[in-house]
Design a protein around this nucleic acid. Structure first.
Lengths: 351, 351
DNA sequence: CTGTTAGCGCCTTCAA
DNA sequence: TTGAAGGCGCTAACAG
């Protein structure tokens, strides 16, 4: 590309280097390095000369080269999520970012779209970029590629899913407890026939939420009826259709518990459509549900907290890199119940 | 799995280098380098030997060092937003990420929380990390620190705000047109007294949306009455209070246009609270508003598209880095009107 | 206090 | 086709 002039540095528009600053200030590169690092053993005059040149040349130290020399720490945290567009994960990301920032680290994001191959690819890429650690919201149950041993000790923390077969820290949500208490609340309201709109059992969250639901029923002495259990495909419109079907069986449920946000909304539409008086509760918050025409109850949790806790675990591992690794920790973020009821009676539609 | 056997790799192994691989394969580091880069002038036997060693040692090339040698490209795109927790910006981030990924680049995020100092800090940090370019959702109107000239030619693209005083590309939303057409729609419905819930005039979007509102009124021959114009502080609850006040004046408006998401929701609450039949329109989408008890109209736009367009502009600049810089481009993302009306009549609350 | 030497991990250039 | 020398920008470790 660039023509090479013998004895001269190639003509480039690139950033100045320490050598440039050193030359401008007529000192050695080391003095520039020390000054910029705040080394106290630099005389005030030198420091002033250097800083002046830095100002003039608008010099900015190359952190990449610096990291290479000082031991490979890139000052980067990897964050791999299934869908950044989903508010749950963007809030999680915000939590990670805020904690990383407090420690002078930046966050590199990767979006898998739920694709396991893409996840592997991203882990590999980030490892090659020498991030200091990775937080992953895994796309599936295969976590083999997340084993730190296979990544030369790169710390890994899972979020939302517990590790399966790998020795890593994880932050999960109290899926079981949340589902259980939401179901209990429905029972306390007098419901005895409660429908369940689940995720696949293959997903960990799906299994846990179902387990919590069943546990509540059993504690109340209510038999779990297969006829009231549904598994909803993760497709737009599926939850609504399934709910409509569920409400049309003989002896239909008087209440429904939906295992996630999407199912809750689908169920809500189906119930509203029928004009039914079916009670509805669901896992995951539904922002603004107090403006809905009908009340719903939800299991909420602090999404940002999941990110912050994951970051805390990760930073801890990074700091303790070298220690005989403590055994994996599992942190559970608590859930709480929230009742949304219309703030005021439905009013007439304008026009 | 995970049992510790003597002779196995230690807990915290430092990554192997090319030299290690070379030693293991009994070749020179250059051969490893060439093999890994897919240089065709490597004999099949050599290649096989190298790849075998790579496999055994679980070697992963250090992209940081590689970038340093090959010219400083970090393969990173900087993305600085005001609030990643806000779905608008997380969708924008998703758009940026997807385009970056298509080009083999990763995205480093930074959250300013609307703080200009933090923004400067992040720009500086990312420049030091030698990202290939930066996309910024600016926190204020001072963009001096974003001038590429001051960043040694680092490409910068603004999102959501046009550049003020700096020569950079930008992607903005059609704030004027969107506000204008939403207001026109209210007028077409017969409204002649329309309230306006604005942002500060100091913000570009605030000024533009007000301008669009006024333009629609003027075109319809309706005078702009100061008594119907409000500026809402960006504080929770402010919009609702202001709307309540606005609806209690003598000769109150029959419709309200809110300049952003928060104002729209505040106005909605205030209107619902009074049981008023005031029509409501607002800038920014309100997801799930079709489940609300009363209808609203919103100005929507593709947030992801803003991110994708910004990334496109940035990638274009990065590719053409060296060319005599073309003059700044300004891309406007179009808006559209969306009417949310309750899908079905309000039903009885199920106890 | 300041400068020199050497090398982080990799790749460009040139020689064999 | 392979290897040796040198350097990207920076900083430990050692002079002076």
């Amino acid at each position: 590309m660039g023509s090479i002039t013998p004895g001269m540095s190639p003509e480039r528009t690139s950033s100045p280097t320490m050598r440039d600053v050193a030359a401008h200030a007529e000192v050695s590169p080391m003095t520039v390095s020390r000054t910029l690092r705040g080394d106290p053993r630099v005389s005030p005059e030198m420091r002033a000369r250097v800083l002046a040149s830095v100002e003039v040349l608008r010099y900015r130290r190359n952190d990449v080269a610096r990291g290479l020399r000082t031991g490979g720490s890139s000052g980067l945290l990897g964050l791999i999520v299934t869908n950044l567009g989903n508010p749950f994960y963007s809030e999680l990301a915000l939590g990670v970012e805020s904690l990383a920032s407090e420690h002078g680290l930046r966050v590199v994001i990767g979006n898998t779209g739920g694709d396991l191959d893409r996840e592997r690819q991203l882990v590999d890429d980030m490892a090659s970029r020498r991030v200091d650690g990775i937080i992953v919201v895994p796309a599936g149950n295969d976590h083999a590629h997340l084993e730190p041993a296979g990544l030369h000790g790169l710390p890994v923390v899972l979020a939302t899913h517990p590790p399966s077969g790998v020795d890593v820290d994880a932050v999960i949500v109290d899926d079981f407890g949340g589902s259980r208490s939401a179901t209990c609340a429905l029972i306390a309201q007098g419901h005895r026939r409660i429908g369940f709109l689940g995720l696949g059992r293959s997903m960990w969250t799906g299994a846990e939420r179902l387990r919590g639901f069943c546990s509540a029923l059993e504690d109340a002495g209510i038999p779990v009826e297969d006829a009231l259990l549904r598994s909803v495909a993760p497709v737009a419109g599926a939850a609504e259709a399934v709910t409509t079907e569920l409400l049309s069986i003989a002896d239909p449920p008087t209440a429904v518990f939906a295992a996630n946000n999407r199912n809750t909304l689908g169920a809500y539409r189906a119930i509203a459509e029928r004009g039914a008086a079916t009670a509805l509760a669901g896992f995951d918050d539904v922002p603004l549900a107090d403006l809905f025409a009908a009340p719903i109850s939800v299991v909420t949790y602090d999404t940002g907290e999941v990110g912050r806790r994951a970051a805390t675990l990760l930073l801890d591992r990074i700091a303790g890199a070298g220690q005989p690794s403590a055994h994996p920790r599992l942190v559970t973020v608590p859930t709480s119940l929230k009742d949304y009821r219309p703030a005021c009676g439905p009013q007439a539609a304008p026009v």
